[in-house]
Nucleic acid binder design. Sequence first.
DNA 1: ATGAAAGCGCTAACAA
DNA 2: TTGTTAGCGCTTTCAT
Lengths: 350, 350
Amino acid sequence: MKSVTVYDIAKEANVSVATVSRVLNNTAPVKKETRERVKELIDKYQFQPNALARSLIKKETGMIGIILPDITNPFFPEVLSGFDQEARKKGYTYFLCDTVSANADDAEQYVRESQYLNVLAEKQVDGIVMLGGRIDLAKPGKELVEEVVDVGKRLPVLLINGRIPGAGLPAVASDERFGAELATTHLIELGHRKIALVGGYRHMSNTVQRTAGFTKTMERYGLEVRKEWLLHDGFSVDSGTAFMDRLLRLPDRPTAVFCLNDLVAIGVLKAAVKAGLKVPQDMSIIGYDDIPFASYSIPELTTVSLRAHDLGRTAAEILHKMITKSKVPKTTLIKPELVIRESTGAPAPH
Amino acid sequence: MKSVTVYDIAKEANVSVATVSRVLNNTAPVKKETRERVKELIDKYQFQPNALARSLIKKETGMIGIILPDITNPFFPEVLSGFDQEARKKGYTYFLCDTVSANADDAEQYVRESQYLNVLAEKQVDGIVMLGGRIDLAKPGKELVEEVVDVGKRLPVLLINGRIPGAGLPAVASDERFGAELATTHLIELGHRKIALVGGYRHMSNTVQRTAGFTKTMERYGLEVRKEWLLHDGFSVDSGTAFMDRLLRLPDRPTAVFCLNDLVAIGVLKAAVKAGLKVPQDMSIIGYDDIPFASYSIPELTTVSLRAHDLGRTAAEILHKMITKSKVPKTTLIKPELVIRESTGAPAPH
DNA sequence: ATGAAAGCGCTAACAA
DNA sequence: TTGTTAGCGCTTTCAT
């Protein structure tokens, strides 16, 4: 079934396509009478202008691409909801580009990112926001960087919580060191002296930054950062239980553990409970991210909120400015917040 | 900065645009030598063909729209990941259209759905899949139905877990009654006789179907369905704790509660623990959906898996068939599965 | 206030 | 094997 076009409307209304276009876009005065005639036809045929044709000439599509690693990781929907809220308000529609790979193969993930970067450019999106993946790397490879920089030259590209060394790409980022300081200070002020840090990946910049914030704070208070209490390479629940099991087997245990994300904290919590420990009486646990589940667990998780929603919302705001060629700050920092719930408390006196 | 077009490539390669198009799409034989010359230029300029122009003439965009209520509800990312996997394999990119409204206003949500339906049609998506929202209604209003039916006439529209009465729109759906039977039977076989059903909304078809499955099973076993143990109107964690608080105040308490989704089950669990009950010894709790959190809680939640990932994957498969004009079944039913974990057990003998 | 006509960047007959 | 040309459906000068 053929779809109706401006020509069909124009012909039946005895006007030119230009006029139809004018009433469609309110782009020039049209005689009231003619306008109504045209509007009636539009209604009658449920005419929907072809956005492709329009975009082809106007050089703007109202489409955005958002590239992220894995929508089933509860952190991302939170960011997305903020992004959605603002983007919708500005009239954008967006492609969700999930780069997760079945076998958790990083290389494959980067390939996906590259593919999406291309597809999005071909589809003529007005802008792209990236989060996770290669931009989380502490030191990304040469080609990975170059690709993004190249795309960034052709259209607005904004980074959330990541960076591409050398490229002048604008970014919205969480103040990672500050967040880690928040968590560490909280534990210390509660009276903890023996604090473990678990989770994250050493090749990821968030991990190195949070670890730095932790270490710095410990040192500031003259506390020792013990090698055997520093367990990296894992962001999942399972890795969390594994970390805790390791910690539990140690002759000298920490009294508190700072987990580099909430998923790990959940795993740590599960392992602690299974081992018969009471949280927070026997062991304090603090997470990072403040995913929704953090407030669902028993006990509810104390954590550091990344303010994911704000991150997303801000990103949409800034990307819009980039698209409309307004000036934007190189980096917009979002301050994390400490969210004290039930999983942290004073250490048991002994 | 002007982008390069087929003309630029053609001119510099001393060929016609047709030839460039041919090497781009492998749509006709091109002399090896010419092909390479063209390819080199494409590479040199990092030429990316304009998908808008291509789609305008080919009448296919490789774009799909997916309309859903709220990406922060953990059920949807799960569906989406399955959908993504299959859609990507087939070469589609998709718009994520979240219709959540800040103030949880249903009417506003339906307005959003309508807007997206229009926008997607204008953007010439190859197909649309809807889940949640109006299609979850037990009896949706006339205009809500009509709109979808109209769009369905113009392009492929597929429903996940919902229906539009009267419209012959294909659907992929979970067998809700079966799922409820699964849960109820599990509880009964464990020895429970006094079972509560909480959660859901009476105006939603999933709720009426699950409730029907529950009631039918209870009757089959000659068990009584008590009015005061039937608590509806809520799908959130908070509503779950409220439901449980109500139940706990009753002189005659149930020994098990069947929650119409996992979020409610989490709330119920929290309230039970807070009240000093041991789960499952003092109270069995079973959820519905099997969101990731279900296996994170302590104790881990027994639940009914909707097989969200499969739902999404199947939807993408079927939508693709619709787009390519293959025959598709009117309704594809996905059988839920019982997932036994730790929150259900035999009732305490008294 | 309105119309004619020239594209936007690409594909696909149709010729050669 | 390659080129010419006519659109796809719309917006937008430039006339009138």
